[in-house]
Design a protein around this nucleic acid. Structure first.
Length: 604
RNA sequence: GGGACCGUAGUUCAACCGGUUAGAGCACCGCCCUGUCACGGCGGAAGUUGCGGGUUCGAAUCCCGUCGGUCCCGCCA
């Protein structure tokens, strides 16, 4: 059907006869001569149709619509000097058509133009409904190619490092904790259900027990939770697990993997090793476990300065065991008005969305004078004022925004405001790749609703041996306060992946399960097979998983992972193209031993 | 479950404080044009303003409901 790809033709092909197949991207009819931009996956080339050189081909060219599937036979020739197109990769040449054959012509108006002006966005609903058309467009073609390149680079790297790609089951069983499962009824085992995996976590550990030593998988994962721009009900992880490596070695291997991907895909040389920060420091300085380090405005704790002052909002927060922290917005006096910080304002609303009641603020004027409400000004001694300015590094013109309350809320609110203002005030440098390993996560966090400790990562993370000690008798006491050997890779404030060393000792694993209040029988029922396996010579092992969709999104400069997935779902977890999910017949349900309790809402 | 924004011709947008025949670019159809590349020129067709209800002399516009899409909160080991 073809001898060459459209986008590959260069001047070295001049005078050769070529056979091309592709889509009519655009047509320019000059009456005498007709130009066709013929597009295939590789790119676009100009076809020139001259009536003097074939009346038959000219007659076909006269009635071509965009997106006609066309086969062209012709001779490559150099374009006249004045007609070269430098914006086109194939702009040196054109194909003089000798024969045109319509392979397929669209028989209706297309729902949107494939070849479209850059500044013209198409409604996403239409793009999703007719995804096959959307995939023809440059943007999606580029994104999917980039995704392919990312995966292939990872595969080659891991191949060289001795990893084996293994597939794990999609029909499996529900794993403890975590998100809502997608369930699949079993026909053969009546009344029982498969769960689709939220991740291959247990299987990859069992592969290590199985002696595979180094495993990876481009693994589809399923979580039945509400969607976001960076969340889909099914998504892909680059999932890895390895034996006989300590945390240092795992981090080293993975940052070399990431550096290789960025080198191949973006041509960017990442300086290794990547920076690191403890979880504790991240929470202190950024209020989040995934700090965006591309800009400043770090959180500064001032609880000690304001603990005793007469301003109740501040002193009360500290007295109640919470804290007072602030961020300093350089030049914020001019850029952020009072109205925006007070109720109804955009900055206020960001803080509120994070659960804060509001934001106190101080404007720093010339000579270090502060401009704020009386309740703060009147209660702040000159000494404390000086200390505040010194610690925040606030200059004249700076705006200091305060959060006060329980520490978690303060962190969350200031983190959110910081990110919002950085975007709003355009403080985020373009083209920055700020990677950061966040390490030393705590093993557990307290769940106030259920009044119990909860695994921060998952209950199979290994504890830091220093924190745990050698004496098993002390584990129950030391474990709750221990740090985990867990790590997240953060890029520009987004979590790119995370992992940990795992527990390979059955006794310790049981201790962890006890700590999170999981009963023995319950644990046996849910993943007894793992506990059993740990008793049969499990090697020390650990792993990591990267969110592939998110990684590609960042590499592609997109803002939604939908633009990195060939056939994504909407926020209602529906596929607009296939209309999935759909109904099932009574017969199907009966065979599955399932009855639906769904009741159609009444009309009117 | 909650909050916000959006839905007008095939498509991207416009239509002022509710006002008389809902406009424009691209695409489509017809005619003209031999070097364009977002070609150009002339003409034409194309609309149940997502859907349902209400207010009004009059609704694309205001109100209520509903469907769909997006962003966010909750949720997401």
């Amino acid at each position: 059907m073809r001898s060459h790809s459209c986008g590959d033709l260069r001047s070295d092909a001049i005078d050769s006869t070529v056979l091309l197949s592709g889509w009519v991207d655009r047509r320019r009819d000059h009456g005498g001569v007709i130009f066709i931009d013929l597009r295939d996956r590789s790119g676009t080339v100009q076809i020139t149709v001259d009536p003097d050189l074939g009346a038959e081909a000219f007659a076909v060219a006269e009635h071509l619509r965009n997106e006609t599937v066309l086969q062209v036979e012709g001779r490559v020739r150099a374009r006249p000097d004045e007609s070269r197109n430098e914006r086109l990769a194939t702009g040196e040449v054109e194909v003089l058509a000798q024969r045109l054959k319509v392979l397929n012509a669209p028989s209706r108006n297309l729902p949107f133009a494939v070849s479209v002006h850059d500044d013209e966005q198409v409604r996403e609903e239409l793009r999703l409904r007719h995804r096959y058309l959307d995939l023809r467009r440059e943007r999606m073609r580029r994104n999917l190619s980039l995704r392919h390149q990312t995966v292939q680079t990872a595969r080659r790297f891991l191949e060289d490092e001795g990893f084996i790609e293994v597939e794990t089951p999609v029909l499996t069983r529900s794993t403890p904790e975590g998100a809502r499962d997608y369930l699949v009824p079993s026909r053969v085992c009546g009344g029982e259900w498969f769960a689709l995996p939220q991740s291959p976590q247990l299987f990859k550990q069992l592969l290590m027990v199985g002696g595979l030593e180094r495993y990876y998988q481009v693994a589809r994962c399923f979580r039945d939770e509400d969607l976001r721009a960076d969340r889909q009900p099914e998504f892909t992880q680059l999932d890895m697990e390895m034996s006989f490596l300590d945390q240092e070695q795992i981090l080293d291997l993975n940052e070399r993997l990431i550096a290789r991907i960025w080198k191949v895909v973006k041509g960017v040389e990442l300086p290794l090793p990547l920076p690191r920060m403890t979880w504790h420091e991240a929470m202190e300085r950024y209020g989040t476990d995934r700090p965006d380090t591309r800009y400043g405005m770090e959180l500064v704790g001032v609880s000690d300065i304001v603990a005793d002052m007469g301003f109740k909002v501040f002193s009360g927060a500290v007295a109640a065991g919470g804290s007072v922290k602030c961020i300093t917005v350089p030049g914020g006096n001019d850029k952020v008005s009072n109205v925006r910080i007070k109720p109804g304002g955009d900055v206020f609303s960001e803080a509120q969305k994070a659960g804060a009641g509001g934001l106190a603020f101080i404007r720093v004027r010339d000579g270090g004078e502060i401009d704020t409400i009386g309740a703060i000004k009147d209660n702040l001694s000159d000494e404390k004022k000086a200390e505040l300015l010194q610690r925040t590094g606030a200059e004249p013109g700076s705006l200091i925004l305060f959060g006060a309350g329980d520490t978690a809320t303060v962190n969350k609110a200031l983190d959110r405001v910081r990110q919002y203002l950085a975007k709003e005030l355009e403080l985020v440098p373009a083209e920055a790749w700020n990677f950061l390993w966040v390490v030393d996560f705590p093993m557990f966090e307290f769940n106030a609703d259920e009044n119990r400790l909860e695994a921060l990562h998952h209950p199979f993370c290994a504890a830091n041996p220093e924190d745990l000690g050698d004496d098993p008798a002390q584990w129950s006491e030391r474990l709750p306060k221990a740090r985990a050997q867990a790590y997240d890779l953060v890029l520009n404030g987004l979590e790119l992946g995370g992992g940990s060393l795992r527990i390979h000792d059955a006794a310790l694993q049981n201790q962890v399960l006890q700590t999170i209040g999981l009963a023995q029988e319950e644990a046996q029922e849910q993943f007894g097979f793992l506990l059993e396996a740990l008793e049969m010579g499990a090697p020390p092992h650990g792993g990591i998983a990267f969110g592939l969709d998110r990684m590609v999104m960042l590499l592609a400069g997109e803002e939604s992972i939908r633009d990195t997935i060939a056939f994504p779902k909407t926020q209602q977890a529906r596929c607009l193209m296939t209309s999935a999910p759909g109904g099932a017949s009574d017969k199907q349900l009966e065979e599955l031993h399932v009855a639906s309790t769904w009741v159609e809402p009444e009309e009117n």
